[in-house]
Write a protein that binds this DNA or RNA. Structure first.
Length: 180
DNA sequence: GCCAACGTTGGC
DNA sequence: GCCAACGTTGGC
């Protein structure tokens, strides 16, 4: 993955996806390979645009569903350890991913029309660094997280919804107070 | 490094 | 529109 970030290109999967009724979805998880863009980098940057996602399902969430103030779990994939390492929040809702129009970008997509952009991103800011981090193995042992998307075999979505019970369980495990 | 699970591509 | 081949993700 890239700064998140998935690289694949494809065709529209769904449209008119049920947009969040107010307050319906407040929590998300993003995956990133720390060698590409890790939590430490986010701390240094203080804020980043979550660009480079090239998967339609993830795009739909970035474009329409993620709202300012929503909570975001930050997960390190393809890493040692694989873990949720921090909590961030959305500080800017979906807007076009300019890297798609940039020929020099590894995420350039000539098929994306600036007048009708295909790819979107949000901005996030770090809120809390988890210490210790919540390693995957531990998460898998938590009954409340049995159905969490992240922990399902073969789940490759780099942006995922997180249910409120899952969010609460994770925040409790982490022993942090977050207001999202 | 392996490979299962996906998503995408392209021939038909 | 089917589906086999291919490429990628990402846990193990």
């Amino acid at each position: 993955m890239v700064k998140s970030k998935s690289k694949s290109k494809s065709e529209p999967a769904q449209k008119g996806k049920a947009n969040a009724v107010a307050g319906a979805q407040r929590y998300w998880l993003v995956k990133s390979e720390p060698s590409v863009y890790g939590w430490q980098q986010l701390l240094l940057d203080r804020r980043t645009c979550w660009d480079g996602v090239r998967n339609y399902q993830a795009r739909n969430m970035l474009r329409s569903d993620m709202q300012c103030g929503d909570g975001v779990l930050f997960y390190h994939s393809n890493a040692v350890p694989m873990a949720i390492v921090g909590i961030a929040k959305v500080v800017r809702a979906g807007y076009p991913d300019a890297t798609a129009f940039d020929k020099a970008s590894p995420h350039h997509d000539p098929a994306s029309d600036p007048l009708a952009p295909t790819w979107f991103m949000v901005d996030i800011e770090p809120l809390v660094t988890l210490s210790p981090v919540l390693v995957r193995e531990r998460l898998m042992a938590v009954p409340e997280l049995r159905d969490m998307l992240l922990l399902q075999r073969g789940c490759r979505l780099s942006v995922q919804p997180v249910s409120k019970p899952e969010w609460l369980a994770i925040v409790a495990l982490a022993g942090v107070k977050v207001t999202c």
